[in-house]
Design a protein around this nucleic acid. Structure first.
Lengths: 193, 193
DNA sequence: CCTAACTCTCACGTAAAGGTACGGGTGCCT
DNA sequence: AGGCACCCGTACCTTTACGTGAGAGTTAGG
C-alpha cells in the first residue's frame, strides 16, 4: 500500500503538424524495375517529415523493434514502405493513449509471437477495451478540471471590477464576490502557505 | 521549426485515495498555549497521508519553495498548518493541468514577487485562461481517441464471430466486416511493418 | 569530380519527479 | 531506561523519450 504509482494524465499538443508539401527535392529511390508510383520507398528523413517524428525517434523505435525498414539501400540507408507510415502513426496514437514505448513494445511482441491471429485479436481487444476505460476516466477528470478552471476564472473576473484600492493583499478572500461564498481551490491555493 | 516539443497529454489516475482514518497514533504537537483544536499542527507524515503524496515529494516541493512549514519542532521536525493541505492539493491540481513543478515554481515566484495582488490576479487569470484552452484542446483530442477506440472495438467485435478457420493471418483485413470498408488505424497499425 | 544534403553508427547528455539508502536524532509510551 | 515509529539531511539512483554531437560514408545534381 506504499507504492504511490504516480503516472500523470497522458495527452498533449502532440503537434499534428504535417509538413504537407512533401517536396521530394532530390532523392527518389524508386526500385530497380521502373517508376511504379505505388511502390516508392522513402528514407528515414521522409518518414520523419510525414509523421512529425524526428529521425532520432524513428531510430529509437527501430531499436525497440517497433518498426523495421523493408530494405536498405546499397549504402545502408534505411528504406521504408508506405506501411511504415501507418505503423508510426499507430505508435503515436498508442502513445496518446498513454502507453509508454516499453508497453507498446510488449504489445508488439505479443502480437508477433502469437501471430495465430485469433488469440492476438483477443489480446488487442483487451488492450483497447481497458484503454477505452482509462480514456473515459481521463475525460471525466479533465472535464472536472475544465469546470474548476471555468469557475476560478469567473471568480477572478469579479475581481477585475473590484475597487483597486481595497484588494491589496486581502484580494483572494475579499467579500466582493457575488458568485457564492467559498473561494475556489485554484484561487485559494495561491495564498495558502 | 525544428524543436519538436514532445510533451504528451497530461492527466492520469492521479489516485485521489484519501487515507481517511487519520489515526493520530502518537504525536499530537498542539502548540504551547492549549488544546485549541483549530490550530493543530501536523508533521510531514500526516501531511503526506492526507494528500496522497510521499514525504519525499513534500521535501522536494519545499526545496522548490512551493511550500514551507509554519514552524519547526524543538528537534527540527517540520510542522504544517491546515493551509499546507490546501497548498499541496492546489499543486496537485496544477500538475493535473499539465504544469511541471518548475512551471509551478515560476507561478509561485511571480505571485510572491508582485504581491501587490492586482497584478498577481491578472497573471493568475492569464495562466488559468491559457490552461483552460489547453484543457479544452486536450479534451477534443481525447474525445477523438475515444471515438477511435470505440470504432476499433466495434470492428474487432465483428471478428469474434468470424469463422475461426479463415481468420488466420489475413485477419486484420478480411472481408467479413459489414461495418464499412476501411480498417481502423488502430487495427491496421498492428500489421503494418 | 565536387559539393550539398542526407544518412550511418556509436555514445554521451538531459529534464522530470521523485525513489532509495545511510547514519543519526526525536517523541512518546511504558 | 528501553523501544518503536517517525523525522532529519545528504546524496546518489531510476526511468522515459528522445537531444546532441562526432566522425565517416552515400546520393543526386551540376
Amino acid at each position: 500500500m506504499k507504492s504511490n504509482r504516480h503516472h500523470r494524465l497522458p495527452l498533449a499538443a502532440s503537434s499534428h503538424d504535417d509538413g504537407v508539401a512533401v517536396s521530394p527535392a532530390h532523392s527518389e529511390p524508386s526500385s530497380a524495375s521502373d517508376g511504379d508510383s505505388s511502390t516508392e520507398l522513402m528514407q528515414v528523413g521522409d518518414l520523419a517529415r510525414e509523421t512529425g517524428k524526428t529521425v532520432r525517434a524513428l531510430h529509437l523505435y527501430e531499436e525497440l523493434e517497433l518498426v523495421r525498414p523493408v530494405a536498405r539501400s546499397k549504402g545502408h540507408y534505411r528504406l521504408y514502405g508506405a506501411d511504415a507510415l501507418l505503423r508510426i502513426r499507430w505508435i503515436g496514437k498508442l502513445q496518446d493513449m498513454g502507453l509508454s514505448l516499453t508497453e507498446i513494445q510488449t504489445v508488439v511482441r505479443e502480437w508477433e509471437e502469437l501471430n495465430s491471429a485469433p488469440r492476438a485479436m483477443v489480446k488487442m481487444r483487451e488492450v483497447y477495451r481497458s484503454k477505452l476505460e482509462e480514456t473515459r476516466a481521463t475525460l471525466r477528470r479533465l472535464r472536472a478540471l475544465e469546470h474548476d478552471l471555468h469557475q476560478s476564472l469567473a471568480y477572478l473576473d469579479t475581481c477585475e471590477v473590484c475597487d483597486p484600492a481595497r484588494l491589496l493583499n486581502a484580494c483572494t478572500n475579499c467579500d466582493m464576490h457575488g458568485c457564492g461564498d467559498h473561494v475556489p481551490d485554484l484561487v485559494a491555493g495561491f495564498r495558502a502557505n
